[in-house]
Structure formats: C-alpha cells, structure tokens
Amino acid sequence: MKAQVGFSQRIRLEWLDYTAQLVIEGHSRKEIKARLEELLKKHLSVGRDFPTIGNREKAIVILLKIWSSPPESLVEFRNDGLKLLQAVSPELRLAVHWGMTMAVYPFVAAVAEIVGRLLLLQGSVARAQVLRRLCEQLGERETVTRAAQRVIRCFVDWGVLQDTPRKGVYQSGPVREIEDERLAAWLVEATLIARGVTLYPLDQLVASPALFPFRLRNITPWAIEENGRLTVQRQGGDKDMVVAERRR
C-alpha cells in the first residue's frame, strides 16, 4: 500500500457530494474550484502569507483530486463511480465516496484497514492504537499522525465510527449492506487499487477490513469482470484471484 499522506483535512460528505454533482453536470475544473472556494469560505481558513497553504486550499485540492481531476489511470474508474452515485440509494452514496477516496488516497485505506482489523478483534478501537500501528507501517512522522487523526474524525463525521464515553475510543457505526453487485465489484476494484497491487484473492478483497463500514453481498466472478478492467482467474483449483489491468 502506498505511503503518501495527501489527505490531511477533515472533509465533509456533503462537500464530496457537491463536488461530484458539479462533475456530473459537466462543469470545468476551474468552475468547480471557484464554486468550492465559495462553499468553503465560511468553514475553513485560508493561508494568509504566500507560500502558506491554508486549510481551505488543502480541502479544495483533496476534493478536486477525488472527483474532478483524479490521476489519469483512475479516470475510467471515476466515471463508473459517477454513474453509481446517480444510481444508488442516498444511504449508499457513502460507499461510492469511500471507494473513490481510497483509490485516490491509499493513506485513507491504510487507516481504514487498521481500524477495521481492530474493530474485528476487540469491538472498539482506540485512536492511540491506530496511530501506533500506522507509524509502525509508515514511520513515526508528525505528518502521518496529524493526517491520521483527521481521517479518523472524518470517519466519525461520516457515521462509520461513533464516539464512546471513553475519550479517543470509538465503536463501529451501522454496517451498510451492499447488495448491488455493480457497486460491490467497484468497491473490490477500489480496494485492489488502494493496495497498489494487480493480483489479489477475491475472498480477501470482499472481506477487506478497509471496507469495514460495508458488507458486500452478491459478488460473483462474473460481476467482477463486467467492468472490463478486472478478470478473475482460478488458482490452485479453488482460489479465485482478481487480476487488474496494468495502470499507466
């Protein structure tokens, strides 16, 4: 999994929704940036002295990279995500934002995977545990710790984690059932992208701790292969492996 941080601000779901909707409506990156500057004016500070970058600018960069101008290798994946946003029920829009955010910012997936593993093991998760394990993986840097804290707060804001009476300790929010096989297959692809690999066992992707807010149903090799970017190969007689096309 890639170690770049990048995602360093608390991002609200409604901001992701707003950005994606502007892309769907066909607005240019310049137009979307101007709209976001207006939207976030009341919420986030701006850098006062060049070359200081304020929280508002950082949030706009994140939002644009997720939905307006992702890496070229993810444009087709993003386009499918936009179609899903228009097709799924309102309560499942989070799953689409989750998948796109993981694919563009694997750091978020790294935090989610640690959180998911700890929830599975002990039913709750302490912020200190997440930070310790993340620093073991990526190195003990202030940027890692600070960004991870903001990602965790995003998870709380998005309802996938809930505060408990103990400060800095969280429990899982409601788990959402994903029965739409197109969405489930797209989330499998998002998890594969976030891991930075092109080959991985299907059952481990479906049950990935990074997808802890969701439970994937109706996922078959045929559904996986429908988007044209993934294939499923049988190995060892009984092991389905998901294979992704190599991204430039």
Rank of each mutant, 00 (worst) to 15 (best):
V160L: 06
E136T: 05
C154V: 11
E142K: 04
R150N: 10
R150M: 02
R153L: 06
D163Q: 14
G159C: 06
T145S: 06
R133Q: 14
V125S: 01
R141E: 11
E140G: 04
C135E: 15
T143K: 11
L131T: 06
C154P: 00
L118N: 03
R146P: 01
V144L: 09
Q129G: 00
Q129E: 15
G123E: 11
R133Y: 09
L134R: 03
R132V: 07
V160C: 14
G159T: 03
T164A: 05
V156K: 10
R153M: 06
A128R: 13
L121T: 07
R166I: 08
Q122S: 12
D163T: 13
E142G: 01
T164V: 09
L119S: 06
T145Q: 12
D163A: 10
A147T: 01
R127T: 14
Q122T: 03
L118R: 15
L161P: 01
P165H: 08
G123C: 10
W158L: 07
D163G: 01
L120T: 13
Q122C: 04
K167V: 12
T164H: 08
K167Q: 11
R153H: 09
A128N: 08
R141Y: 08
G168M: 07
W158T: 01
Q162R: 15
V130I: 13
V160Y: 04
G159A: 07
Q162E: 15
L118E: 14
R153Y: 04
A128V: 12
W158M: 03
R132P: 00
R127Q: 13
F155M: 15
S124N: 13
A128S: 12
A148M: 03
Q137V: 08
T143Q: 12
V130A: 09
L119A: 05
R166K: 13
A128P: 00
A147R: 01
R166Q: 12
V156H: 03
L119D: 03
G139L: 04
D163I: 11
L131G: 06
Q149H: 03
Q149T: 07
A128Q: 14
Q149E: 13
V130P: 08
L120H: 14
L119N: 06
L131R: 02
R166H: 05
T145G: 03
Q137I: 10
P165N: 08
V144P: 14
C154M: 05
G159N: 10
G139Q: 14
L121P: 01
L119H: 08
L131F: 07
G159D: 02
D163E: 15
R153C: 00
R146W: 07
G168I: 06
V156Q: 12
Q122M: 05
A126V: 00
T145C: 01
Q129K: 14
S124Q: 15
R146A: 03
W158V: 04
Q162Y: 02
R132T: 10
G123L: 08
P165G: 11
R166T: 08
T143R: 14
G123T: 05
R146F: 05
D157E: 15
T143S: 12
A147N: 04
L131N: 05
T145E: 14
L161T: 07
